[in-house]
Structures are given as C-alpha cells and as structure tokens.
Amino acid sequence: MTDQAYNFAYLDEQTKRMIRRAILKGIAVPGYQVPFASREMPMPYGWGTGGVQVTAACLVPEDRLKVIDQGADDTTNAVSIRKFFQRTAGVEVTEATAAATLIQTRHRIPETPLTRGQILVYQVPIPEPLRFLEPRETETRKMHELEEYGLMHVKLYEDIARHGQIATSYDYPVKVEGRYVMAPSPIPKFDNPKLSGNPAIQLFGAGREQRIYALPPYTSAVSLDFDDHPFQASKAPHHCDLCGAKNSYLDEVITDDHGGRMFVCSDTDYCAGRRAAGQKGRLWSPEPQEAAP
C-alpha cells in the first residue's frame, strides 16, 4: 500500500531531477565525485541517506527492490529502508539478487554475479579517499584535479611498515579507468575485484558529504598496491558453517561464552539459496535447535 501523502519514492520530482543530473555526470566521468544538494531524509545521517536519495531518483514503479546491510536482508538498516520504499513507492521487493532490478547495499557486493540492467546503489559514509591523509577539502580537490595520488601510496606504505602487509581491509582505494582514485565505500577488500568490469551500473551516494559518484558498466577499477606487495582480496580462511561455501565472504558469529564461534556467509540470500539447493555446512541441520556447545 502506498502512502498517498508522499510523491512517488518520497522525493519531489525537481529534487529527483537534480539528483539524476548528478548521477548522469557521475557516469560520464567515472570515479569523479559530483556535488549535489543532499536533502534531509526521514532517517539519521549514517543510515544511508545518500543511498536512499540515489535509489529514490532511480526507482520506477516496475522496479523490484532489494536492500542489504552487510550482505544481510534482515538487519535493521535493510528492513527500515525496504519498508520505507514499500510505503512511499509501492514497488515490489525481493530478497533474491538475480530477481532484483535495483539493489541498495550497505558495505557489500552480493556474491551472485550481477547482470546487465541491474543497478547497485552503495551507501557511502566518506566519499573522499584522501580525507584522512589530507584534511583540507580545497587541497584534496586540487589533488584529484592534478592527479596527485602519491599520498594514497604513503598510506599503504605505512600499513606495510607497521604491520608487514597492507592491513587496509575495507574501503580499499581503487583507481578508475587510470584516472580518478575512488573510495569504494567500506566494502571488504574481498569485494574489490567485483567492482571492476561489472555489467551492472554502480552508483555511490554520500548524503552527509553531499557527493554522488558512479562506475558505469564494464569500467576498470584497479586496487592500488606496490609491485612487491600486490593487492590480495582476503577473507576468513574457513568455509561457511551453514552452506559450506568456500568462496564467499564470511562473518564470524560468537555462539557462547566459552569461545565457541562459527563462520557464516555474510550474504544471506546466497547462503539460503545454496542450502535450498542441498548444500550443507558443518553446523547445518534443517530443524531449528540449540546452538552446538
């Protein structure tokens, strides 16, 4: 049921028009942060106000929406945003990655490969990859303009000097089409290879910072590294305890007070799909039961 007090997808048409122009510019210049007049949304900053505005501007009544938070469909952030669009836009929602036409995500790329025609919207807390190295906005803009990205490698150098390896494990900077260095939002670096050459349109919205940027389909995004310390997409060295998947990104779940823990796929749709297809992990049993001691 649609709440008739709102325009379709909450935002008024002029605002959506403004956001679409920013998105088009972002797609025309991959990796470039386009400023836009971010609106107050009925949720706090940090809950995905940027992503929600981009989603609102892209939604059409025929869309099927999927919302994930750290890969899961059933966590607070995902549920509240999904409900928000069900109420204000009345679009269909789904949990199946393959069935969705528009996916808003917080900090993960779904394990199921995306296809042509899909749109992936990221929620971005800090769009500026150079921010913690250079606090001045005027200076970081100048650095993007002149392609002065040496500082980004200073950060990676510091990682190796201090930890013996590149310890940055999320929000790992990428260079887009050999030009702009971009923050891929805090996705684990395990997901970085999926950014590059992806058939879906990838849009990034930062509400508080008022920036939109984009990766058009099949755009190259190279993770920065050193010749003698190459980029490695890392994950926990385990299999999923529910579905037995070897190659999916895992969450560690503490199960009791005695050091018991299990690893499960962070992508709930992928995990459930594998279980439905008969795959079994170490701790999976079809009937609900008490957690193993």
């Binding site: 040496g150 500082l151 490698h153 200073v154 150098y157 510091e158 000097a161 010749d227 003698d228």
Partner: peptide, 27 residues
C-alpha cells in the same frame, strides 16, 4: 613533515608522488 606518518613514509612520499611503486626500493 607529516607528523602522523613514519620517518620512512615521510622520506618516501616524494618518491611515491613521482611514481615509485616498489616498497623495498622506496624503503
């Protein structure tokens, strides 16, 4: 100087700015 960056990183910054990408050589 960049006070939050190690001495090695400080010396290496100009090298990385002009394209040095080998950690061992920079160090």
């Amino acid at each position: 100087l960049r006070m939050g960056v190690s001495a090695g990183g400080n010396v290496g910054e100009r090298l990385m700015a002009i394209g040095a990408r080998h950690y061992g050589e920079i160090r």
